[in-house]
Write a protein that binds this DNA or RNA. Structure first.
Lengths: 185, 185
DNA sequence: TTACCGTATGTCTGAACTGACATAGTCGCG
DNA sequence: CGCGACTATGTCAGTTCAGACATACGGTAA
């Protein structure tokens, strides 16, 4: 309870991780590091202060356990308030975030540059996306059958599907770019 | 010349707009507002200070012309140094930007919420993406034949192709989500 | 004529985020 | 037994960015 400061998206990201089970700040930071989780990232320098805000807001509590480490570790878990706030937030429409894509910006200005250098740039990007796609496809095989909504694993599966679709789109676009730039030589 | 401060991505975005022709700060802000340009956005409160940095770095110059407006307007254009810096930047690999997607984060936590409310969320998002897709498809029709690299319009066309692919991927994923959540009722 | 919209440039505050700095115990390996 | 990797929590400075505030002229429509 107490302070009425609005929970940030980062705060909800932390709550979403804690909804799967109790975690230390360190565990949360590890969970939110790519490529494990490709849809929200944060370093521990953001997570620790945010946990303190969530604590002040009564959305999480922690339990102190010892080592290994210099200080005792703090194992956080959701309170009923935290769980309720998360559940409510999930179904509210997401705030529009501006797209900021450096590769697309470079594409916009690519007519200025040497086509061969641009072709190489996209060939490299294509390799990155194909590698990531292969990785996601391997992960997909771990799901014998798609979990239904209500199962925590549905969250993992549905986000993986999104990542899969994204990488396919991106790889296809890079391939198209490479083809365009090869033709012009 | 003078100051050796590294140009930010926003700075290059401005240079990329100016490469198409001379513009006022106001024009640049208008060009970088969605949905005109869906890959980099900035408000005028960012653009004016950034133009001053580019000016200090010798990458742009301006010419004062009068009205309409309280002060005289400043029409900016690239210097040869600015043009060179942009051309060089275009073919360097983009810095990895962390993915931060609020909708995907909500998806990750969606197993907690009422499936019917989640279904509505995705149905709404689907409508948004379908509308944007239709808009991009109309824009695509303006290009009788795809411009070749070297033509400034190639930049517009290639970025539009990316947007088109993205909206298709996103719409398809939303449709899949809606189907999953309909089945479970 | 009065109100509003578009043009036009700028500042400021606060939030979000990155990367570096700081500290320190445990465990496994050579 | 020492070294390095991993666990673990935290601060701080600097950058980027969104949104509000500030100012002011010209054109158009009620």
């Amino acid at each position: 309870m107490s302070s009425t400061t609005k929970t940030s998206t980062l705060g909800f990201a932390i709550l979403a991780v804690l909804a799967r089970g109790e975690r230390t700040g360190y565990d949360i930071a590890a969970a939110m590091r790519r490529p494990v989780s490709y849809f929200w990232t944060a370093g521990h320098s953001q997570i620790h202060p945010e946990l303190q805000k969530l604590l002040a807001g009564g959305l999480v509590v922690y339990e102190t356990r010892h080592g290994p480490g210099p200080q005792d570790k703090k194992v956080y878990r959701l309170t009923p308030e935290g769980s309720g706030a998360l559940r409510e937030w999930v179904t509210t429409p997401p705030r529009e975030r501006p797209e900021r894509d450096e590769l697309v910006l470079k594409t916009y200005a690519s007519w200025l540059a040497d086509p061969e250098l641009v072709r190489r740039l996209f060939a490299d990007q294509l390799a990155v996306h194909e590698a990531r796609l292969a990785e996601y496809e391997r992960e997909e095989e771990h799901f014998a059958e798609p979990p239904g909504p209500g199962d925590p694993r549905f969250g993992n599966y549905a986000t993986l599907r999104c990542g899969l679709g994204y990488e396919r789109h991106r790889a296809e676009w890079c391939r198209w770019m490479v083809a365009q730039l090869s033709d012009s030589l």
